[in-house]
Design a binder for these strands. Structure first.
Lengths: 196, 196
DNA sequence: CTGGTATTAGTACCAAGTGCTAAAAAAATT
DNA sequence: AATTTTTTTAGCACTTGGTACTAATACCAG
């Protein structure tokens, strides 16, 4: 055998992670060991069998799809929300969100997270952005986890407006700030707690 | 039992469609027929077995993940550009850009088009949005063709800033306006630190 | 040489099927 | 009613990609 068991198991985990569709047999021949060894490895590493792995992938998709009925419309994941008051979402910046040239996140993704959080925090069927003043304080990079907080600052009921302040941070550093003026159809009305 | 074969097969297709994780055995007992009948039905309807179905779901998810990586550097298509002066892009709003509930385009798409046009018009390797004041004048709907014009209003060379006005229209109706303050490197050192 | 870890082999068994044949049961046709 | 056709059920062998378990080696160190 080439290297240690440890090394093989490290590679195994990696291999399976980026292609869960691989069978023990394929793995065995890839690593030049017997199928049994692969099975032992999986057991030690608590990696489930092919079918379970595939089912997990599929189930996850399903979960997302089912859950994403209301949340799909939000960029980033809402982790806390109190309607008409405040909301928090997190958004992991990936390679697909940055300029290739310099690795800095494109502004519109930060805007999108902030904007959709502003929409989400409003307890109304219809919420539209009327105006926004936004400030890109610091560059954000791939791998950064952006935490965005939206706070409802005030309402103007005659004009059907709601004013929201949004601040995004990475590691407690402010990277983005914005003030959003939102239009809504109703004033504060029905209450369904959509807490998380 | 209850209804005709046709009817059962219709229901079968439906059932499997919204829950691909169901086994023949479960289906058999649900429809009050034998497992063999279910198998025959699946054969006639060309519905693959449980494991294949699950694999398909999983594979599709995988595909999507891989495909969604490369995101166009520009949102909308630039049809005219004069660097450091002006640029025009068009963006066709599709069903995927609007809120399901009311068919109105989500703000961040309009912002994204404007923002990326502002980036594109700058004749520099690095252009970042520092600040933006945007105004969503009128709702935009699926099927609308948004034409966005960016005009460079001014420069502040010591601060490496460029000021850009952006107006988006649908059928000559203004739907979005924005002022963008952009940072550019142009000759100077590269680091971008903004106030705050 | 003895002991412990690592690896391989082999067997029985499982889930959820496919493929095939054949027989019953139900429905339609003559 | 008798016959034909369609539909349904049953049974068996076989397949994948495993689990669970036992037993035999192989390797390496003290």
């Amino acid at each position: 055998m080439k290297r240690t068991k440890k090394e093989r198991q490290r590679l195994l985990t990696e291999t399976i992670e980026d292609n869960p569709f691989v069978t023990d047999e394929q793995l065995a021949s890839q690593f030049g060991v017997s199928v049994q060894t692969i099975r032992l490895d999986r057991m030690e590493l608590a990696i489930p069998e092919l079918r379970e792995r595939i089912k997990d992938v599929a189930a996850k998709k399903y979960e997302n799809e089912v859950k994403s009925l209301p949340i799909d419309e939000v960029i980033g994941e809402i982790i806390d929300i109190e309607l008409d008051s405040r909301a928090i979402s997190i958004f992991d910046v990936g390679a697909e969100h940055v300029f290739q040239r310099n690795g800095i996140a494109r502004g519109h993704h930060l805007f999108a997270q902030a904007n959709s959080l502003a929409v989400a925090v409003i307890n109304d069927e219809l919420a539209l952005t009327v105006k926004a003043n936004v400030f890109f304080v610091k560059p954000v990079r791939a791998g950064d986890r952006v935490i965005t907080k939206a706070i409802v600052r005030g309402q103007h009921n005659e004009k059907n407006r709601t004013y929201i302040d949004v601040v995004s941070t990475v590691n407690n550093d402010t990277v983005f700030k914005g003030e959003f003026e939102m239009y809504r159809t109703k004033g504060k009305g029905d209450n369904h707690e959509t807490s998380n």
